[in-house]
Amino acid sequence: MNVPTTSAASTAAPIIAIRNLQKSFGTNKVLTDISLDVDKGEVVCVIGPSGSGKSTMLRCINTLETPSGGSIVVDGMDMTDLDLDIDAARTRIGMVFQSFNLFGHLTVRENLTIAQTKVLKRSKAEANKVAEANLAKVGLSEKMEAKPGSLSGGQQQRVAIARALSMDPDVMLFDEPTSALDPETVGDVLQVMRNLAEAGMTMVVVTHEMEFARQVADRVVFMDGGVVVEAGPAKDVIGNPQEQRTKDFLSRVLHPGQLG
């Protein structure tokens, strides 16, 4: 299925270009044929039932999962090229995980600086400056010396966002960033992501937060059974879905009140 590029600002080449992406685990075909473009500064939300392959698609973008077929080009780098320096490429793609994955043996400061100093070879002073700026961005400056274990889930996720931002990535990938959170901490994380979107960050967000997708996404992609079923502006895909599978999914996840 073709995916229309509806972003108004699409003058240059897309920053993420996925072409005929396929992924199988053994005989289990998770992604059949995915093509998707994301423009610079665009926020794309990927929705769909669990098992639809949306997380796998996201993890293929920075090749945490190795694609079985097709091509992925991020910022001019062919991610499926075996000669590509994949570690260098990944520094330009930030990723936020459902389970935060903060380094439990390190403080928040060390979480934010370790990859800056060891991978980007920044000086300690510079790395600290970047870390402080990003921790302020997520509203947790006072937690600089805390251990991740002492933070709430929402705080850990905001630190994880700050950690990814500290690498100054061109693109941010979010893999169900609020799914493991207590309901009362979800709002803080979504607010941080909203600010990030307004600041012009290119974001691909796999999420179940329909309200967030509706308000923040430039484009919503609905996936089911390893294919993109429907894609377009949020108000179309969520507000007025064309495909039956999209309609079925949305009626299941949206509250009856919101449907009315």
Partner: peptide, 15 residues
């Protein structure tokens, strides 16, 4: 050690 720790480290560009 949870697999997510390696994934997070790799996603930050660590070998």
């Amino acid at each position: 050690v949870p697999k997510g720790q390696i994934e997070a480290a790799r996603s930050l560009g660590m070998s």
